[in-house]
Each structure stands twice: as structure tokens, then as C-alpha cells.
Design a protein around this nucleic acid. Sequence first.
DNA 1: AATGATATTGATATTCATTTTCAATAAAAT
DNA 2: ATTTTATTGAAAATGAATATCAATATCATT
Lengths: 155, 155
Amino acid sequence: MNINIIKRKESELTHYLREKGLRLTQQRKQIIAYFFSKYKHYSVEELYEEIKPQIAGIGLATVYRTMQLLVEAGLALQRRFKDNITRYEPVHKNHHDHMICLGCGEIIEFGNKKIEAMQEEVAKRHKFVPVSHTLQLYGYCAKCMAKQRRGKREK
Amino acid sequence: MNINIIKRKESELTHYLREKGLRLTQQRKQIIAYFFSKYKHYSVEELYEEIKPQIAGIGLATVYRTMQLLVEAGLALQRRFKDNITRYEPVHKNHHDHMICLGCGEIIEFGNKKIEAMQEEVAKRHKFVPVSHTLQLYGYCAKCMAKQRRGKREK
DNA sequence: AATGATATTGATATTCATTTTCAATAAAAT
DNA sequence: ATTTTATTGAAAATGAATATCAATATCATT
Ligand SMILES: [Mn+2]
Ligand SMILES: [Mn+2]
Ligand SMILES: [Zn+2]
Ligand SMILES: [Zn+2]
């Protein structure tokens, strides 16, 4: 099933490249094949480390450049949380925001129409015209909370 | 009136320094005097540039260190928006979030209990225990919108 | 007021993520 | 096949922030 997604993404990228006079290289093909086969919030460094064994001789700069390209082409979104490392996620559904676990680093996506609506309202109250926003919750995921409780009990 | 705030902040810092075995230096005194006399979201670079003429020979590293110290002492808050530059604001009131103007860079503070409550709710739904959060709206402030409208009319 | 212990300073080097440079290479139009 | 030029990988450069270190200032103790 993943193979279809990858084919589609490659074709979407091809269209973008063509209209911009750019080229579809082996590196670009392989990076998107890998990136869209997993669903993660990858940093370039992480992606590079995982991809390196698969793509002989690939350079870090190429991964940086390709991820930027995917954003320009509308196939990926750039995110940046507290750790100050740029991450990329596949464009897959509607706008959403993130909860980030301080214990294990897990990133949970959530969407909430009410919160979005209230943001619009607050903006209007200040005569501010919103273009985009970021909302991040930092804390501990269910798994990490359970682990913490176990740890305390054992003392 | 500002002089009183500054005196109070200096005394708060003094208490913190004493209990930590640290020292109240001329540089620290002068930086807090300046920082608390303006109400802004200063980057270290900005603060350094403004302070340099007032404090002969002050070093950039000292400003970096002092701002960190103010955070540790609970007198300042660290913020970081899209431009990825660390900024500091005086602790002055309750928790709040920010709207940032993409035109002029103005930073508008706002607090909204309903949004905060909904965040708690969403977190609970995911069994996520929130510790902190950041919410930023990016867009155009009233002033910049007016300017833009004027520009279009003149064409 | 002088002393001594040590926290602090300013200059500079270093770090880390990311970007830029550039000569060699590969894509794709002819 | 040839030609044009976008792309690549390696290495250098960037920019914000931190670490290092010898000189200096603070401040508790004489
Ligand atoms: Mn949102
Ligand atoms: Mn908030
Ligand atoms: Zn976790
Ligand atoms: Zn503005």
C-alpha cells in the first residue's frame, strides 16, 4: 500500500519540478521513497542517518536541500519545537498542532476546532489579521506517566 | 516611577544572588536598570547594542549570561518565536501568549482563559499531562493592515 | 582599610544546526 | 550523441549561543 503513496508523491514532485525547470534525480527519488514510507517528524540529521546505508554516497547537504524542496512543492511541512531542530512531516491531513513528550520525545498530533475559533476571535479583538499560528503543549505522554508511577512505587 | 521598579528588581536579584553565593556587579546592575526601564521583548543582540554606549567596555557574553541569570532568578522570561532568536521579557503579570506581526515585528501579548482550558481538555483526552505550552499567532497588526490598505489605494 | 578566596568579566575560541560555495557530475532537451 | 545547466558531495562559511581562560572585581573576614 505504501508503494502507491510513494508513486503518487513522486509524481506530484515531478509536476512541481517540471514547472520550475528542475530535475528529478536519483537522490530525490530515494529520499521521498524513504520519507513517505515512514510517518514521522524527521530531523534532517535523523533522516540522513537512516538513509545513508541505503543510498551510497549521499550527502547531508542534499538531504537538507531535498527537504526544503518538498516544503516548496507542498509535500512536506516544516516544524520546529523547543529543541530548536527543524523537523519535517509529510503533508497528510488538515491543519493540526502538537503535544511533545518531555520524557520520550513522542510527538502527538491533535486538531481542535474550538481552539482555532477562539484564536480567530482573540485576533479580531486586537484588530490583528492572523496568517498562521503554532500551538505546542509540552508535558508527559501516557506511557511516560505510567513508567514514572512504576518507578515511584518501587522505591 | 520606573526608578522604583528598578530598585525593587535589583533587590530581588540581590536576594537571589546572596542565597546562591553570587555577586552583584556593576554590569548586572546596569543591565537590569536598562532592561526593566523599557518594556520590550529584547534579544541579547538588541539589548547589547542599546546598552553598549551606556556601559563602557561591556561584553556581549556578559549580556547573554546576565539574561540567563534573570531567568533563573525568576525576573525574566525566555521566549523564542519564528525568527529563532531568543528573547527576554520582564516578568510582569500572569501567563500570556503572543501575536507577532509579520510586517513590523510588533509583539502583542494576550491571555485567554478559555483557550487555556481547552488545551487542558485536549491533553486530558490524550492522557497527556501538560507542563507548559506555547501559542503564537503570526499575522498583521492593525497598523500594518492600515498601511497596506493605503498602499493599494494609491496605485 | 587591607587581605584573600573566588565569582565575574571581556575577548576569543568553540559548538551546533544549517547554508553556501564550487568543481565535478548527471539529467533532459536538442 | 551533444549540449546546457541543474544537482551533487565535500568542505568552508554562517550565525546564535556557549565555553574557556587569564585578568579583575566583589565581598566576607581580618
Ligand atoms: Mn492550530
Ligand atoms: Mn497560553
Ligand atoms: Zn513520553
Ligand atoms: Zn505590524
